[in-house]
Design a protein around this nucleic acid. Structure first.
Lengths: 233, 233
DNA sequence: CAGATTATTATGTACGCACATAAACACAAA
DNA sequence: TTTGTGTTTATGTGCGTACATAATAATCTG
């Protein structure tokens, strides 16, 4: 090695983590400023900056110009769940992925969907209901509305080879949206589709996707009983 | 202004976003390398690097040394849900925060909790059940196990002023853990506590917290009916 | 021609410097 | 006392250079 102990920004980050973890720098407390830490660690200020910026993004530190950097009072607050891509999720567990489009129609969506898609009046748009399966057992039931006014091509798509989601990912560039997670009890119809008992508790993921100013699609994913969304941090 | 059009890394990032969004650079495609982009945008390579690194972290680009940078095939939709801090969440909506410790006992936890806390044999640890309220209406029911072997001080804590969570945040430095989200139907007992009907669908957030190699606490938060965890991206 | 070796190349990171910017602070004027 | 107005200071960012590193491409070798 050219230099035995050249400080990388990761090394600085680890060191700072230790200081926080060991409560040498206590929650809410101001820590030394970048220039001083650079001197202490024997590296450039840019390196310290990189390290601290990362920790701030992770929510461990709070930084404000002139005010300085302090240890966050309530550390672990945000956890990044990676939104599952159904196909990958199923295939990664070695199960066989499949899906079946139950329903495909043009219809005026219910008011909540109208609002989410920013539709006016009585526009009919594409409505799809799809069941995704893992080894032929129900995995997740998808109810999807596609703004076919913004994406007219979708009307010509057949979803034999590509699921609605995969078709959209391929054909449309998304640049944002929102997610909502909640819990519901299965209705009789939902229970029938998911092959479970009515009233079972299920996880619901709702998701709206946008391209520029156009709202493209609104989805509701109803997962099979026992499904858990998991993440470390 | 000193210089009208000095390129910031954010400007570069926006530009690249537009290229991707407009499908000038298509999914899976290789984009020009940093040096070339720097030349194009009229800025330093470090600036381009910063911009592209950010987009890669966001899942929009995939970068590998020597291989270059390409537009991600399936923009990895990872959503950073901010784990709710109950008190803040309630008070931010203008409601009155309150809580009541229902149960406090030493007990051998069930096997799943034993596993999550890496406890051996028949260790008795602290078990708490707390109901958090918003304007006196049930908000979330917390079932918490605290590894009182690793945190003996907790046995002397009274939870009159500080909720168990707040006590822990103040007294113990966490540095990691994991989260699980799922949906369940309310049992009769849970329905009684949350003042809802048995069988209603509820969101459950489970969370384990670690300090170094010690597992500190395992919590199960059972939210009131209609609760939604929400995020934009 | 397969397999090992070496060159090439794009990203990753460090440094030192300069200046921009936000915010806390001190001080002066109304 | 309040309201401006400057000053100070810590972070934020940009630049150019240098070198590290990983992975591909090219070349040599048995």
């Amino acid at each position: 090695m050219t230099e035995a102990d050249r400080k990388t920004w990761q090394a600085v980050q680890d060191e700072v983590r230790r200081y926080i973890s060991a409560r040498i720098w206590k929650p809410g407390e101001l820590i030394p400023h970048e220039a001083e830490l650079a001197l202490q660690f024997g590296c450039a200020r840019a390196t310290v900056n990189r390290a601290l910026r990362g920790l701030a993004e992770a929510g461990l530190l709070e930084r404000r110009r002139k005010a300085g950097t302090r240890v966050a009072l309530n550390p672990v607050r945000r956890a990044a769940f990676s939104i599952p891509i159904i196909r990958e999720e199923i295939e990664s567990t070695g199960q066989r992925y499949g899906y079946k489009v139950f329903l495909r129609e043009m219809r005026v969506p219910p008011p909540d969907v109208q609002a989410r898609l920013q539709l006016s009046g009585a526009d009919k748009i594409l409505h799809l209901q799809t069941l995704y399966t893992a080894d032929n057992r129900p995995y997740v039931f998808e109810t999807r509305w596609i703004n076919s006014i913004a994406v007219p091509d979708v009307l010509n798509a057949d979803f034999d080879m590509l699921s609605p989601n995969e078709w959209l990912v391929r054909e449309v560039a998304f640049d944002g949206g929102d997610f909502t997670v909640s819990g519901v009890a299965a209705t009789r119809e939902e229970a029938a589709v998911l092959a479970c008992k009515p009233g079972e508790g299920l996880l619901v993921l709702e998701r709206t996707t946008r391209q520029g100013d156009n709202m493209i699609t609104a989805v509701r994913l109803l997962f099979h009983p026992g499904y858990r969304m998991h993440t470390r941090c």
